[in-house]
């Protein structure tokens, strides 16, 4: 994998990049394959500190839920994981995020390439209104100038992957915004998957959906877990309990507790976590 611009900078040495030995080994004694790892990640908007030093390894091919009250920094956290935070004016990120051991905030790294490896699904379904359903699926490839040799095949494969194919196969030329909210969100997931990312970040992907559409997206997350590393931000604790292998609880820009999901929800070690999941605040 190469996050640096297509023309390799021949003279550039790579001593700054840490070897891909599990950086979070201390916290995770079993030391499984770490896909993504935040190290002392700090983020702010202007002078408002939103993340106050988050260190958190994320295992490959697992679903990690990030929960916490509004304003705790959970959305900012996932946006830092694919360099989307810095897109907003005044937004600054410090610290490191390692993808397979390589710092995505390294000086040589092109943020645009990072985002092709680490896909993102947003809170509000956002298909491109000027493009048809099939062109939405292909958007990430085509708008980048990539020639797609067999577009029909890519479209069908990705739409099947998100279980949308049977619903839309007879109207692939219709606008992406003609679909229902839940269908739009699955279309957006298909659009991300078409770029073959290794990691998929989901920022409250179901908060704009009804329960049935939510269930379908959750089912989809279950299926995607086999091939992708998924980080999902959610407001909904039941959702975290249903879909996630591990859960992180954020509070006031800090990572309070990070453990197996059942541990977080049944015997949390921190008082704050317990208060939050039992509904005493938040």
């Amino acid at each position: 994998m190469n996050l640096e611009p297509a023309e390799p900078v021949v003279t550039a040495p790579t001593p700054k990049v840490k070897a891909p030995s599990a950086p979070g080994g201390a916290e995770e004694p079993s030391a499984p394959e770490v896909k993504l790892s935040a190290e002392d990640l700090r983020a702010r908007f202007g002078t408002t500190q939103v993340l106050k030093g988050i260190s958190m390894p994320i295992e490959a091919r697992t679903v990690t839920a990030v929960i916490g009250p509004s304003g705790c920094g959970k959305s900012t956290f996932v946006r830092c994981l694919n360099r989307m935070h810095e897109v907003a004016p005044g937004a600054v990120v410090e610290g490191r995020v390692l993808l397979d051991g390589q710092d995505i905030y390294g000086a040589q790294v092109d943020p645009v390439l990072v985002r092709r490896h680490i896909g993102m699904v947003f809170q509000k379904p956002n298909p491109f209104p000027t493009l048809s359903i099939q062109d939405n699926v292909l958007a990430g490839l085509r708008l980048n100038g990539t020639r797609v040799p067999n577009p029909a095949e890519v479209v069908e494969r990705r739409l099947r992957q998100v279980a949308l194919w049977d619903e839309v196969k007879d109207g692939l030329d219709r606008s992406g915004t003609s679909l229902s909210g839940g269908q739009q969100q699955r279309l957006c997931i298909a659009r991300s998957l078409a770029l073959e990312p290794e990691v998929l970040l989901m920022d409250e992907p179901c908060s704009a959906l009804d329960p049935i559409a939510t269930a379908r997206v959750e089912e989809l997350i279950h299926e995607l877990r086999a091939d992708y590393t998924i980080v999902i931000v959610t407001h909904n604790m039941q959702q975290a309990a249903r879909v996630a292998d591990t859960t992180a609880f954020f509070y006031m820009g800090e990572l309070v507790e990070y453990d197996q999901t059942d541990v977080i929800f049944t015997r949390p070690k921190q008082r704050k976590t317990e208060d939050y999941i039992t509904g005493r605040f938040g």
Partner: peptide
């Protein structure tokens, strides 16, 4: 959100501006 969608798909800013 549409700009974010484009950036999230790994499009450079200029392509997002022109094509989206």
């Amino acid at each position: 959100q549409l700009r974010e969608a484009g950036l999230g798909l790994g499009l450079p800013r200029w392509r997002v501006t022109l094509k989206i």
